[in-house]
Design a protein around this nucleic acid. Structure first.
Length: 723
RNA sequence: GCCGACUUGGCUCAGUGGUAGAGCACUCCCUUCACACGGGAGGGGUCACUGGUUCGAAUCCAGUAGUCGGCACCA
């Protein structure tokens, strides 16, 4: 076993970390062969262990040493006689081809020792000082002091062949970094064969647990299980569950559930319990059922029957072997079923340079500092938004952006609350069959978002859910819907129309807050309680009588029948027109305070949409007049643009327009279209593409080409008109 | 040594066959009565490299390079 001389306890493989490769030495020692003048040279990085050597091994095929096999060696410094043995484990090409064998202090030597029936001589105490087996000269010395002394003594005896620099990675205690000592020791082990096979069968037959992401965790988990060895579960620590094994005076062992049971088994009162405790991960391995009132049998009752197995375990990569695999194995063995179906493995948060955070490097971040600076909700949203399964570098700026988002939610809701007289949360307010484009559009977007968020969550794509909610709330709701609804809800004139508009916007916020709640719990609860009309009536049916809280409301599922493609298309046209007009304003340096006249010509369908949204278009484009025409009638001195579907717009700029600059602007737009058109035309002229690509894909491109051509033609006419 | 992942605009990252995306940063304009932690308009990427499959590749395959990780070994 691996022994930590500082903690004085055994460690399992998973508690061992390779220490950064230290400069080691490979020491070559000469062992005199009895009855001859010959020596056999062995190499070691731990010379002090020669005091516990009980053989030297060579490869049976190695011609250099075959004549010595069976010979005896007079082991220097000890006066002991040991044998030269043959074992195929030895690699003739490494070092001298002869290996000193210390069965009590090396796992491979132990194996060889077992095969050849060698004596196992422990030469150290539990604090890694040498014991009496090391001889009077060495007894009491620390292992590293003893190492130096062995080299010195060999040198004095003329038996030191050479010392080479040798880079080696040493196993160290994960907690205290002390270099571990492999040591023969009596410990409790769990036989893993049966539990391992149960876990492997579960994976093979049912693909459980289902890892997310599946690559690489499924494979790593499976191959770890396949190579699983017995588990050392005893620890010489004071912290933990004491091992339920008792000894009588003669050293007979009684394993039992309780001391009373052990006494009954032993037939005596005079028992002493094993002082060791269980590996903390052994206790944790039982967690899925030991926390549910497990009675030691496979018969489930109470909480265990109700809650076991569960759906999903969310955890980090480094816990998969330590905990996840062991929960699966113990649950299969002791309850006879899986502990959970899915395992979501999150990425690791790295520092801003992409390095793992560690105490020694001091490059960690204190979550409390982040909470203090940006808020708990922003931090939570950042982590959820980064939960792709991949590691990610921590950047305060990212948290800051979600802090800003939290602020946006706060301000948007505050604004609606300031204008909420006469309104209250009312889901029936969204059931209208005829409404404005904006109302139909936001209802469609809200339901589409809810459906997409649910899908993302069911696939454990937390970052996608975060993105959907962020853009719905900020872009759709704040940037467009509030702006479009502003006049109505801030109208000085009280009445049913204003109340209805206010009720709709408050209701949309209520639903949005519920969607955001798992990601930003504090902010959403605070705001939700402030909304007029929220009460325990909105709690989930099972919690109707409880206090009103967003925590007990139902998560919005979204309603596919509320998705309104035509409303989204119409709104798209309005947004495009406003954006084009704003683009002209910005590029032509029109002062924000100046009102423009906006000419627009388009197909009949779009003209109706524009007419219906005239006041919003005027407001958001900062226009004083909207002229909807069959063909734009604007003067030559106008800035112009084209719309999807062949529409055109123009903004008269008498006295303001720089014809050269406008021509440049239009030429730039024309260039972009031209480049795209050339690429698409190339695709269409490829007969292979037209024949082999799906017809709808080909049609899509033809449509796009005709759209581009329409827009190009309009732009060209406008350009010529400028000259 | 074996296995795996990653390499996308200045930065941090989404995006698994059909016109390259986000946040931050950057440029210009705006103290318009929810929010300057804000609003509007922009610029910026031959998706590491090479080859292959395909009508079509950031996306599939092979190889190369770099980065990171897991496992094994280390007399």
């Amino acid at each position: 076993v691996n022994w930590c001389p500082r903690d004085k306890t055994v460690l399992s493989d998973l508690e061992v970390k390779e220490e950064t490769k230290k400069d080691g030495k490979l020491v070559h020692l000469r062992y005199p062969i009895k009855g001859t003048d010959a020596v056999i040279t062995v190499a070691t990085t731990r010379p002090e262990t020669m005091l516990g050597d009980t053989a030297v091994a060579v490869n049976p095929e190695d011609e250099r040493y075959s004549k010595f096999i069976g010979s005896e060696i007079e082991l220097p410094l000890t006066g002991r006689t040991i044998k030269i043995i043959a074992d195929s484990y030895v690699d003739s090409s490494f070092g001298t081809g002869a290996v000193k064998i210390t069965p009590a202090h090396d796992p491979n030597d132990y194996e060889i020792g077992m095969r050849h029936g060698l004596e196992q001589l422990v030469i150290m105490n539990d604090d890694a000082t040498m014991n009496s087996n090391a001889g009077p000269e060495f007894e009491g010395l620390d292992r590293f002091k003893a190492r130096e002394k062995v080299i010195e003594r060999f040198d004095e005896l003329g038996l030191l062949d050479k010392v080479e620099d040798y880079e080696i990675a040493l196993p160290a205690c994960e907690r205290c970094k002390t270099i571990l000592e492999p040591m023969l020791s009596e410990q409790w082990f769990v036989k893993m064969d049966e539990m391992r096979d149960l876990a492997l069968e579960l994976m093979r037959d049912e693909s459980i647990p289902r890892f997310s992401p599946e690559i690489p965790h499924k494979k790593v988990y499976t191959s770890w299980l396949e190579n699983l060895k017995d588990w050392t579960i005893s620890r010489q620590l004071w912290w933990g569950h004491q091992i339920p094994a008792w000894y009588d005076r003669d050293g007979n062992i009684f394993v039992a559930r309780s001391e009373a049971e052990a006494k009954k088994k032993a037939g005596t009162e005079e028992l002493t319990q094993d002082e060791d405790v269980l590996d903390t991960w052994f206790s944790s391995a039982l967690w899925s059922f030991s926390t549910m009132g497990w009675d030691g049998s496979k018969d489930k009752s109470g909480d265990l029957a109700a809650f076991h197995p569960t759906n999903v375990l969310v955890t980090g990569r480094d816990i998969i072997f330590l905990w996840v695999s062991r929960m699966v194995m113990t649950s299969m063995k002791f309850v006879g079923e899986k502990p959970f179906s899915d395992v979501v493995v999150t990425g690791t948060v790295l520092d801003k340079n992409g390095q793992r955070m560690s105490k020694t490097k001091g490059n960690g971040i204190d979550p409390l500092d982040v909470f203090e600076k940006y808020g708990v909700d922003a931090t939570r949203m950042t982590l959820a938004g980064s939960a792709t399964g991949a590691d990610f570098a921590w950047r305060d700026e990212r948290v800051e952006s979600f802090r800003n988002f939290a602020n946006k939610i706060w301000n948007a809701t505050r604004f609606c609350l300031l204008n909420s007289d006469g309104a209250q949360v009312d889901h029936s307010s969204l059931l209208f069959s005829e409404g404005s484009v904006a109302d139909r559009w936001i209802r469609s977007r809200l339901n589409r978002t809810a459906i997409e968020v649910n899908r993302a969550l069911s696939e454990y794509q937390f970052h996608e859910a975060v993105q959907l909610l962020y853009h719905f709330f900020w872009d759709d709701f704040c940037d467009w819907y509030i702006e479009l609804a502003k006049d109505e809800i801030t109208s000085a004139e009280a009445g049913p129309a204003r109340d209805a508009a206010r009720t709709r916007i408050i209701t949309i916020i209520e639903i949005a807050l519920r969607m955001l709640h798992p990601f930003m719990p504090y902010l959403t609860e605070e705001l939700w309680l402030k909304l007029p009309g929220t009460s325990n009536e909105l709690n989930h049916a099972a919690y109707r009588s409880a206090t009103a809280t967003i925590m007990l409301t139902e998560f919005p599922n979204g309603n596919a029948s509320m998705i309104d493609e035509s409303a989204e298309a119409e709104m798209g046209a309005v947004i495009e027109l406003i954006s084009r007009a704003r683009n002209i304003r910005a590029e032509m340096n029109i002062k924000p305070s100046d009102r423009i006249t906006l000419h627009v010509a388009s197909g009949p369908q779009q003209k109706m949409v524009f007419a219906a949204n005239e006041s919003q278009i005027l407001k958001l484009a900062k226009a004083s007049e909207l002229k909807i025409e069959d063909a734009v009638s604007a003067p030559k001195a106008s800035a112009r643009g084209v719309l999807t579907g062949g529409g055109e717009l123009a903004v008269p700029l008498e006295g303001l327009i720089d014809f050269g600059k406008e021509a440049e602007r239009l030429a730039g737009q024309l260039d972009k279209l031209k480049t795209e058109n050339e690429r698409l035309a190339g695709q269409l002229s490829n007969s292979n593409f037209v024949e082999r690509a799906p017809a709808e894909k080909v049609q899509e491109i033809r449509d796009r080409v005709s759209e581009i051509e329409t827009q190009m033609a309009a732009l060209k006419l406008n350009l010529e008109a400028l000259r």
